[in-house]
């Protein structure tokens, strides 16, 4: 179950996935929860992955699913990728697809510069 922390500057909503593992078992639910946030008008999402230890291909697919859903109407950024998750994002070149930041503070700063 994700934890959404809306109300940051410039309408950024920080999302804590609330999961240690984002896999085929929970990827669809995760995607649907993020898409529900979009439905509530949150169109600037920052997913903080610091507590996520493992992401499989279905997890990557879920993230891209949200990105496709947002399209040009908003943005989704990712921060704090660790170890194997960072490797997964590099091997699949998702670092070229998503805006990825080393920390939540860095992400919020960068995102606030382009409201």
């Amino acid at each position: 179950m994700i934890k959404a922390l809306p109300g940051h500057e410039n309408g950024i909503c920080v999302v804590d996935p609330g999961l240690e593992r984002l896999t085929a078992a929970n990827a669809t639910a995760f995607r649907d929860e993020l898409i529900a946030l979009l439905g509530n008008g949150e169109d600037r999402l920052l997913v903080d992955m610091s507590a996520v230890e493992f992401v499989d291909s279905s997890g990557v697919g879920a993230m891209v699913g949200v990105l496709k859903k947002i399209g040009n109407r908003g943005e989704i950024a990712i921060c704090s990728l660790t170890g194997n998750v960072d490797k997964m994002f590099r091997i699949t070149r998702m670092d070229k697809v998503f805006a990825i930041y080393p920390s939540r503070a860095a992400a919020l700063a960068a995102m606030s510069e382009r409201p």
Binding site: S57, G61, V64, K68, R90, I91, T92, R93, K96, V97
Partner: peptide, 28 residues
Amino acid sequence: AGYPPALLVSDDGAITPVGEGGFPVALI
């Protein structure tokens, strides 16, 4: 295309990863 890097094993036993990564297929 998003597949893990291959491992090249030379005749002296040295192992080198092959591939820096790449986009998966049919994702985008």
